[in-house]
Design a protein around this nucleic acid. Structure first.
Lengths: 410, 410
DNA sequence: TTCAACTGTGCGGAATTCCGCACAAAAATA
DNA sequence: TATTTTTGTGCGGAATTCCGCACAGTTGAA
C-alpha cells in the first residue's frame, strides 16, 4: 500500500512497528541506525520515514536534516518518548511531518502513516504532472540548458507566452533572439496563427502594413527594433493605437534594455509599448555549464545534416569549451560544432599523387560490398540480389567487372 | 496562508480557535452549526474544515459524510472531548484527516492545520495540473501525423467535440476508432463525465440501460454499431426519443458510411440518429507520410513499456514502411513497433527492409568523398579535381547530383 | 584598371552501364 | 527419375554517365 522506512535502535520496537505496519499492508524496511537507513533514502523515495528521535550516533534530528537535504518534501514521522511534548514540538518545527509517542498502538500509528503516505503520493504525483506538462512545453523542448539562467529564461518565456501583450526580447548577438521569439509564439494562444519574422532595419511603412495584415491572429517578430526607420515606428504606433485587428508584436534587440531606453533610436512611446513584457536571453558567459549540452546538441544536429556519424566528444574538449570566451554565443558554438563534425584539420592535406582517384575509391568500395554480400549469402546469388536490390544481370555484370565468381563463395 | 472553516456550537471555543488561527495568518471562517457552514462547503474549497464532533442537530460525523459527498479529498479535522479516543478513532476511520482533543493550544493545533492545508494545496494543485494537461488539446496530443489527412481528422474531431450531438466514427480495422472516440470525448464538454466503452455486438437491452445510466453527463461509445441486436437498437432509439437524461452517444463502425446505410443491419432511423455528425478515420494507405511519425511513436511507447532502450530507426527503414501496405493500419504498425523493439522477427524487419541497396551505399560513399575532398581543399574546385583525378564537368555533374555547392566550403 | 585564373553551366555526342530477354546448363527438390 | 529452381551469359536497346567545348561571370594578382 505504501512504503515505510523505520529507523530505531531498539530491536523490540522495530519488530513491533514492523509487524503493525505489515499487518496494514504497508511495505516496511526496518533499520537500526541512520547508517543502515541512509542508502534507502533518495530523492523521489516512494514512501515515508518513521524514526526514533533519541538514538546513539545520529539522532532523529540528524536524520530529519539529512533527509530534507536529499528531498525536502519527504515526510518524516518522529518517535518520541512518552510525554516528551517539547521534543515533538521542536521536531515538527524543524520540518517533521508529524510525531508519535512511544509506545503507540495501531490506532494512533496507522492514521499518521496513512496521512504521510497520502501526502507523499500527492507530492510525487505533483512532480510527475509538472514534468509531463513541461515535456509538452516548447520552452522545455527548445531552450536547452540545465543552468539556473536557462531555467529562468524558460520561465520568462512561459510567462510571456501566457500573456496577450507585446513582448521585447533582448540578448547579446548570437544568443538566439529569433528562436526565443518563435518559442514564445509556439507556447502562446497565437500559435494557431502564423509566425512572421522581419528585420526592422530599413522596413518601410508599406512593408510593415503588409506584414501586419499577413499575420492577424498570429505573431509578427521585428528584429533589431531600434533600427526601424522613424516613420515606420510612427506607423507601427498608429496601428497599435488603432482598432484594426493586430497580430501580437514581438520585438528583438541586441541592445540591453536599459541602454535601449536611452539609445534614442527607438521612440520612447514605442519602447514602452513593446516592453510591456521583456525577456532577456543570458549570454553563454553567464551560463558556461550549459555549453556542453548546447555543443552536444549542435554536434548531433550537424552530424545528421551532413550524414556523418556522431563523433565522440571528450570531457577535456568540453571543459576547454566551457573555459573559452564566446562573443558569438550560441551561433559561434554552432559553427564550431559543424567544423568539428566535418573533421576540419588542415594538416591533412593530400597531394594528387598519393590520393586514389574518385573512380578507384568507388570501385574499391563497390567490390567490397559485392564480396561481403556474397559471403553473407553463402554464394547464393538469388539471395544476394534481393539484399542489394539489384537485377541479376546487373549483378553479374559487376561481378564480371571485378573478376568475382559467385561459386567461389559457396 | 490557508483557509480554515471552523464549526463549533460553543462560542468561546470558536473565538479561541479563531484567534489562534488568525494569529498564525490563517484565513478563518467560524460558524456555530452545520447549517451555517454548509454554504461555504463546495467542491474545490480552498481550505480545510475544523469541526466539533458533539453538536446538537448535525454532529461532526454528519459534517464528515456530507463534506466528503461534496469533495472526497477535503480534509476535515475532528475536535473531540478530552480523552475521547474511541470517538477520535471512529472519526479517522470514517475519513477524517485528523483529530484534536479539546482544549488544545497552538502547539498542537497549528501543526495539524498546516499538514491538512499542505495536503489540500497538493490535491488542488494536482487537479489543476491534470486539467491543464487535458486542456492542451487532446486532438493535437493524441492524434498523430503531419499529413493533410491527419490534420483533417483532427479538425473533424474538434468539430465533433464542439457539438452536443451524437457522433458516428468510421474507419478501416486497426485505424483506432475507439481511441478517436475517446479523444472526441476528452475534447468536449462531456469530458467532465465518464467515458464508457461497450461493444454493441451481443449487447442486451438491460446491459444498454445500465450503460446509459452509468454515464449520464458523459459519453457512451458503442463499437461495431451495426452488430447491435435489433431489440437493443429499438431500446436505444426509445431512450434517445425519451426525456430521461442521456449521455452523448458515439457509435463506431468498420463499415464505410455509405455501405453502412445500405447494410441493413443498422436500422435506418438509428443510423440517421447517430450519424448526425460523422468522423471518418483515414487508413494508413491514405497518409503514408504519417507512417514514420506513428511508427516512431509506437516504438517509443513499446520501448517504455518493455523497459528497452529506444532503438535507432533508419531513414531507409522508415521509407520502406511508407512503401508497404498496411491492411492492419495503426494496430499493425503498433505490433511491428513492439516486435521491432524486442528484436523479434529481425529477419522481417532487417534483412530486406533495413539494408540499403547497392546503389544507395555507393551514392553515400561517393557523396562523402566529394564533401571530404572539398573541405580539405577549402572549396577550391581546381584543387579538388586534381586530387580526385576527374574532369571539372564530371565533378560538377556529381556535385549537382548530390546537391553540393562548392562555394559552401570556402 | 587590366589581365589571368578560376568558377559554373548548357549543349550534345561518346562511352558506359543498366537490364530484360531468352536460352542452356547445373543444382536442388520431390 | 522428373520437375523445379537457380545459375550464368550473349544480345541488344534504353538509360545514364562521361566529358569536351564554349561561354559568361567572378575573383585574385599585378
Amino acid at each position: 500500500m505504501g512504503r515505510v522506512l523505520v529507523i530505531d535502535d531498539d530491536a523490540a520496537v522495530r519488530a513491533a512497528l514492523g509487524q503493525t505496519l505489515e499487518l496494514a499492508d504497508h511495505s516496511v524496511i526496518t533499520t537500526g541506525s541512520f547508517v543502515e537507513a541512509k542508502d534507502h533514502i533518495a530523492h523521489g523515495f516512494d514512501g515515508v520515514i518513521l524514526t526514533d528521535v533519541r538514538m546513539p550516533g545520529r539522532d532523529g534530528f540528524y536524520v530529519l536534516d539529512y533527509v530534507h537535504s536529499v528531498d525536502v518534501d519527504l515526510p518524516i514521522i518522529i518517535l518520541t518518548g512518552e510525554g516528551d511534548i517539547p521534543m515533538a514540538v521542536r521536531a515538527v518545527g524543524r520540518g517533521a511531518f508529524d510525531f508519535l509517542e512511544k509506545p503507540c498502538g495501531a490506532d494512533t500509528l496507522l492514521p499518521v502513516i496513512d496521512r504521510a503516505l497520502t501526502t507523499r503520493h500527492l507530492v510525487l504525483e505533483n512532480r510527475r504532472l509538472k514534468e509531463q506538462l513541461e515535456k509538452s512545453d516548447p520552452a522545455a523542448r527548445l531552450i536547452f540548458g540545465d543552468s539556473g539562467a536557462a531555467e529562468q529564461l524558460r520561465k520568462q518565456v512561459r510567462a510571456a507566452a501566457a500573456l496577450q501583450t507585446d513582448v521585447l526580447v533582448t540578448g547579446a548577438p548570437g544568443t538566439g533572439i529569433s528562436k526565443v521569439a518563435e518559442v514564445i509564439h509556439m507556447s502562446s494562444t497565437f500559435s494557431k496563427g502564423p509566425f512572421f519574422k522581419r528585420s526592422a532595419d530599413g522596413l518601410g511603412r508599406e512593408e510593415l502594413v503588409i506584414a501586419l495584415s499577413n499575420c492577424i491572429g498570429g505573431t509578427l517578430f521585428l528584429d533589431a527594433i531600434e533600427t526601424m526607420p522613424p516613420d515606420t515606428q510612427i506607423a507601427l504606433q498608429d496601428h497599435m493605437d488603432g482598432t484594426d485587428p493586430m497580430p501580437r508584436i514581438i520585438a528583438g534587440s541586441n541592445v540591453p534594455l536599459d541602454q535601449l531606453e536611452r539609445d534614442g533610436r527607438l521612440m520612447v512611446d514605442l519602447f514602452y509599448r513593446v516592453s510591456t513584457v521583456t525577456v532577456r536571453i543570458p549570454s553563454l558567459s553567464e551560463r558556461p555549464e550549459d555549453i556542453p549540452i548546447l555543443f552536444r546538441h549542435y554536434v548531433a544536429q550537424a552530424a545528421e545534416q551532413s550524414g556523418h556519424p556522431m563523433p565522440d566528444i571528450s570531457a577535456d574538449f568540453l571543459s576547454d569549451l566551457m573555459a573559452r570566451d564566446w562573443p558569438g554565443n550560441a551561433r559561434a558554438l554552432m559553427s564550431l560544432a559543424m567544423r568539428f563534425v566535418l573533421g576540419v584539420d588542415k594538416n591533412d592535406a593530400h597531394s594528387a599523387l598519393t590520393m586514389p582517384s574518385l573512380a578507384e575509391q568507388i570501385a574499391k568500395v563497390e567490390k567490397s560490398i559485392l564480396v561481403d554480400t556474397l559471403r553473407k549469402c553463402d554464394g547464393k546469388v538469388s539471395e544476394a540480389i534481393k539484399v542489394l536490390q539489384i537485377p541479376r544481370k546487373t549483378f553479374y555484370d559487376k561481378l564480371s567487372k571485378y573478376g568475382i565468381r559467385a561459386e567461389e563463395y559457396r
